[in-house]
């Protein structure tokens, strides 16, 4: 590991502006490189993080992102948690449909990000905020 990322200790970033989304991307990339994701997988997980961090900002009214290098005993991976205390999502199934949007985007953020990672978990309820956890394993 040349990047000096401490495996196992999460790195956190608050998301309150556009520039923070850029910082999240850079943070995710550093960890993705450290856990030796292939170039394509790095690109996928950074793209997913970019979509979800933007959601946290736009729909969640800002929040936090935590990036952790993990290991399941057989292979290393990266886990990212996006948390906000915004309005939450009422109809999750609808929100995960391609092309559905309330924010004037392309409606690919949630559904697209889910396709780019290995594990995708979302916990949300109206008024309860949203917490999304994604994981990508090294091959």
């Amino acid at each position: 590991m040349t990047s000096g990322v401490d495996l196992g200790r999460p790195q956190a970033q608050t998301v309150g502006s556009d520039e923070d989304v850029v910082r999240v991307r850079q943070m995710v990339r550093t960890v993705a490189v450290a856990v030796r994701l292939s170039l394509v997988d790095q690109t996928k997980v950074v793209t997913a993080a970019s979509e979800l961090a933007r959601n946290t900002l736009v729909y969640g009214g800002g929040g936090t992102v935590e990036v952790t290098a993990i290991d399941n005993g057989r292979r290393p991976g990266i886990r990212i948690v996006f948390a906000d205390s915004g309005p939450g999502i009422a109809d999750l199934e609808l929100a995960l449909t391609d092309g559905y949007t309330t924010g004037g985007g392309l409606g690919l953020g949630l559904s697209g990000a889910r396709r780019l990672v290995d594990e995708f978990d979302i916990q949300t309820a109206p008024g309860q905020g949203t917490r999304i956890t994604i994981t990508k394993w090294s091959r």
Binding site: V40, Q42, T43, L108, G112, L116
Partner: peptide
């Protein structure tokens, strides 16, 4: 456009 970017865009559905 880089190959990895193109592959990711296809997966993203863009």
């Amino acid at each position: 456009m880089r190959p990895a970017v193109a592959i990711t865009l296809v997966e993203l559905g863009l």
